[in-house]
Amino acid sequence: MRRWLAIILATALELLCEPLFLLVLLAALVLAAVAPAMHYHQFGEASRMARDAGLSSVLIGGAVVAFVGPVRTFRREFETGTAQVALAHSVSRTAFFLSKTIGCAVAYFAFVAIVSLTSLTIVNGAEIGGRFASVRGDMARLWGPSFALAVAVIVLPLVAGAVLNRFARFRFTLTANVFALLVAFAGAFYRFDAALASRLLPALALATSPALVLLASSAAFAVRFKANAAMSFVALVAACLMPALGCYCLSDALADGGSIPAGYAALAFAVLAPAVAAPLVLGVHFINGRDVQ
């Protein structure tokens, strides 16, 4: 277990320290923050816009993280030789592959947590703004609190990362990510809406499931092929997943005010399990069959 944990932590840390991770995260946060603000003239729909933008950010940004993260970390292991040293220890190749893939999933879920909590923060802000607008009829104030919270979620972590890096030698990207999570968490739960959370969580679970298929495929192909070829194969998997994504209808489910039916979620996960397991089995086969140089 210690061996697995060491590899999982090192992989998650590697991805969370990646400038690319922070860049994708900031892009997703900006999308989640700005998209609803631009549509706030649709009176009464502010919260829904914020939710939709948040889920879109999780889907798009998450897909990028799930697509690129495993390819980068596995290729770097094999190309820089760190895989050689790890596999010269009493770590089986199967454990190495699976624990690194879990490490990638940890980084992916950190991304999802930050973006979705930021979305909840913005929903909260939008509702406060909505109250201001309905009471005072002041349109300028409608998106103000929401936008201010979103800016805080984006700017505060960067400032904290820079200050702690300057004065305490903390890792900039990792610190910024941790602060983004803390700020988003505080913003999302200062006025916790259990009913909203119970509707958003199944939707989030469904939104993340295709990304897990991408993540597992990306890990498997990165073990066998060089980065460009691996990415081409993962793009093929993504293309195959696209029609399935059209069946999710998350936005409609949420717009109706009801939750996603349990049977629907169960069916989605029944499909997900083999879709994730298949690339993992392929990855184990690839890593056990290859020369490590």
């Binding site: 210690r2 061996r3 944990l5 060491a6 590899i7 090192a10 840390l13 590697e14 320290c17 820089t80 030789g81 760190t82 050689q84 040293v85 790890a86 220890h89 009493s90 770590v91 890792r171």
Partner: peptide
């Protein structure tokens, strides 16, 4: 190994702790 293959983002202490973990300590 012939070249010093290490994760550049880890500190010297974290690098040794990582390998200690791989040794099951």
């Amino acid at each position: 190994p012939e070249l010093s293959y290490m994760h550049p983002f880890l500190t010297a202490r974290e690098t040794l702790m990582y390998y200690a973990g791989l040794c099951g300590l």
